[in-house]
């Protein structure tokens, strides 16, 4: 099965808005790309369209939250994590307003539209803001589990999701979820692959290929980039021989950088990171781009073998 995470989020919010009248969804001419047309029709009184104005989007969300609402600001991750970064820093995180920033069409999912539309630095930028949590869900079940937390908790957060439908990492009802704890997708003893977002599925496929060749590989779904599940990382450092991180993000300030920083201080371990380059990516769709930079299952298998 596969499903676009934006649909899961939109459907969840549609249901939730029926019982929680404080839920407000805000868009910046991004209603269609957020799969929010049904929500906007059903809950017009709990929907705010600000036009192509991401700073206004986040500022208004902060004001709504400070007046007791539960705003979910939905906008392309590229613009949300850059144009409105100061609003996220000051009006949301610093003022501690309960705004959920939902970055859609994230990473390189806009493909050939190019760097203006890619969000390859958002773990670094949004994660560096004190008080702002960062989540990259991997599939529909994980996204739903996160949404259940987000409608009831009181802390701001940034969530990045992709544009396309993603294959399920977990079987229906089989996700063993504890908030802010990495999910062990598969256990193993020789190597740990830590991945986030859409690439968890590629890591899982890679581990299956390696298992067929007799290699025991652990796969962790680190959907919680901040707060990072440090316990799971250190456990992996102690129990397996090396760590391979996989992320749809620049080499700087992302998952690999955080894992390396943590292990270097606490339990020095060989860490290798598969990332997007520190450059505009090649032209192509996300599958092309993942393949080009060795972020797909094939590339992960290759890098894993070099570590094993």
């Amino acid at each position: 099965m596969s499903k676009a995470i934006k649909k899961v989020i939109a459907e969840f919010l549609s249901e939730e808005a029926k019982v929680n009248k404080d839920i407000v969804v805000l868009c910046s001419d991004s209603r269609g790309s957020g799969a929010l047309d049904p929500y906007a029709e059903e809950h017009s009184g709990q929907f705010v369209e600000v036009g192509i104005a991401e700073q206004n989007l986040v500022g208004i969300s902060a004001g709504l939250a400070s007046a007791g609402k539960r705003p979910f600001a939905v906008s392309p991750a590229s613009f949300l994590s850059t144009r409105s970064m100061e609003q996220a820093k000051v009006d949301v995180a610093y003022s501690h307003t309960n705004v959920k920033l939902i970055g859609i069409s994230g990473g390189v999912s806009y493909g050939a539209l190019g760097m203006t539309h890619h969000s390859a630095t958002d773990i670094a930028t949004m994660g560096s803001i004190p008080g702002l949590r960062v989540y990259f869900p991997s599939d529909q079940y994980l996204a739903e589990a996160l949404m259940k937390e987000f409608v009831s908790d009181s802390e701001p957060a940034y969530i990045r999701i992709g544009r396309n439908a993603v294959e399920d990492v977990y079987a229906d009802g089989k996700l063993d979820f504890t908030m802010d704890k990495a999910v062990t997708v598969q256990d193993g003893t020789e190597l740990t692959i830590i991945a986030c977002g859409e690439l968890v599925y590629e890591a899982k496929k890679a581990a299956e290929t390696l298992a067929a060749e007799g290699k025991s590989v652990r796969v962790l779904d680190m959907y919680c980039l901040k707060p990072l599940d440090t316990e799971a990382v250190l456990k992996a450092a102690k129990e397996t021989k090396a760590i391979l991180t996989v992320e749809e993000h620049s080499p700087y300030g992302g998952l690999g950088a955080m894992v390396a920083q943590l292990t270097a201080a606490e339990y020095p371990t060989k860490v290798r990171s598969l990332t997007l380059p520190d450059a505009p990516v090649v032209t192509g769709n996300s599958a092309d781009i993942f393949h080009h930079y060795g972020l797909d299952a094939e590339g992960i298998v290759k890098a894993a073998k070099e570590l094993l």
């Binding site: 493909g111 050939a112 539209l113 539309h117 032209t283 092309d288």
Partner: peptide, 13 residues
């Protein structure tokens, strides 16, 4: 235009 490795992307460059 817009194909794999093309220099012609979907926005001015």
């Amino acid at each position: 235009y817009s194909q794999y490795l093309s220099k012609f992307i979907g926005h001015p460059n």
